[in-house]
Design a protein around this nucleic acid. Structure first.
Lengths: 251, 251
DNA sequence: CAAATTGTTCACGAATAGAAAACATCGTTT
DNA sequence: AAACGATGTTTTCTATTCGTGAACAATTTG
């Protein structure tokens, strides 16, 4: 059927424009980006403002995202019981490895880091949480993709492959080979794919149904991580084994 | 004019229902709460899901808030330069007072704690951040209200006054007297109004235009805070004075 | 296994969303 | 200071589409 509500879709897209834009935008700019008339955009903004999803700066007359989105975003995290569940394990893993640990979940064809705990080292690699990125792009997210049906993998990879470094995967075949290796080994280990000089190891969390619920990843500067590869990997795999057992997974 | 886009308004209200509801809701339940037909709600949900604002649980067939809201909520905070600006001052204030410190901003007729740093004490009072509450209800938010025009204060108080404890303000007159005292003293000091056994002190942050940009509040168990009232107050007032100066405020 | 309740689809008439243009309100330029 | 150009705002109007109500399908429940 695919008959969506056009004005609702427009309002969603309007809000998402702000994700990759300056914090304030005007009616004219938004109408260009949405390919809608100024009048239509104005009505969208007025409605969204009345509901707290958009705020207008009284001085500049331009528009920003409203606080209701902050409330809703917070609720998304609170709904996510795996976040609270994982917190103690992640803290322990950070103190044992002394490197960044992240918890990664899937959303449709993307992935999101929902939790991170930074390395205590003064020199450290860190990531942005709560922001979408492609499933094929990081060690943590590739683990999620690896256990999905091949048809879904193809679908994701057909959307196009973005490269980040000279060492990023460039073809679907290359990535699918990597995914097969992940399933065989039970974890991912890779360097320089997303950031040069950075190495990550990631392993899946299984729930009671045998599905991959999330992934845990230890990431850090290669010169610090590579010499300790075996020790870190042992800690990571032991942690996800414990967590999966706690989630009711019976291998 | 007041001609809003009805389906956009419906979609906003649909999302906000989730703020005070179980994490998953069905079409029927939502249609009751929105007073819309099931078909209309279904179309809303389908559109919101296609944009990532809603997610459907494949097993239960029920709906939850989607990850795009997490991204947008995160962006709201990133847009807010006062959050980063305030962070070091707030940390310093916590280490000097050993109590919870919060940063509070106004949103229309509500207030929101945008930042908090908890007390290091094992026994401590804490608050929920990123969640709306009435401007008259806490010391931090009353400070924001105190410096607004009287017409706006009346408007807010006319919406009704909710009480939280036997010591909460119960009438508009009572609150307006308290607001006058805040302006005279330059800070708020109160106990048991929002939580019994809890005392808070709050002071305003002025920006270069002389407007109140936010408020900073030190809050803790009365039996620990009251004996140190003068010392804490001195630290608080010194901190907000420094911060306001840094923001370009010239008294 | 029937009954009830859920999410989903469909068809249609009333309501309105969106385009286009005129208007108002700034800041800038001449 | 006046004219300009840009912005956000309002208005008018019709093709579009939104929302209803009922039928459908797919569960769960008694």
């Amino acid at each position: 059927m695919d008959h969506f509500l056009s004005s609702v879709r427009n309002s969603c897209r309007l809000l998402k424009i702000f994700l990759d834009a300056p914090k304030e935008l005007g009616v004219t700019e938004l109408s260009k980006r949405l390919q809608l008339s100024k009048g239509a955009v104005h009505k969208l903004l007025a409605t969204l403002e009345a509901e707290g999803f958009i705020r207008q700066n009284e001085k500049t007359r331009q528009y920003t995202l409203g606080y209701t989105l902050l409330e809703l975003g917070n609720k998304v995290l609170k709904n996510h019981d795996i976040v609270d569940f994982a917190a103690p394990y992640i803290n322990r893993l950070v103190s044992r490895t002394q490197e960044l640990v992240v918890l990664c979940v899937q959303d449709v064809t993307d992935a999101i880091y929902v939790t991170k705990v930074d390395s205590p080292h003064p020199i450290r690699f860190t990531v942005e949480t709560h922001r979408r990125f492609p499933l094929y792009s990081t060690s943590a997210s590739r683990v999620l993709l690896a256990y999905k049906p091949e048809s879904f993998q193809d679908e994701v990879l057909a959307e196009g492959i973005r490269t980040y470094t000279p060492y990023s995967f460039t073809s679907a075949d290359e990535i699918k080979l990597a995914l097969r290796e992940i399933r065989e080994r039970g974890y991912e280990f890779s360097s320089d794919r997303r950031n040069v000089g950075v190495t990550g190891m990631a392993a899946p969390l299984f729930d009671s149904t045998g599905e991959v619920a999330a992934s845990v990843s230890v990431i850090g500067p290669s010169d610090r991580v590579l010499p300790q590869k075996d020790a870190i990997l042992r800690e990571l795999l032991e942690t996800v084994r414990e967590m999966s057992a706690e989630l009711g997974y019976r291998p």
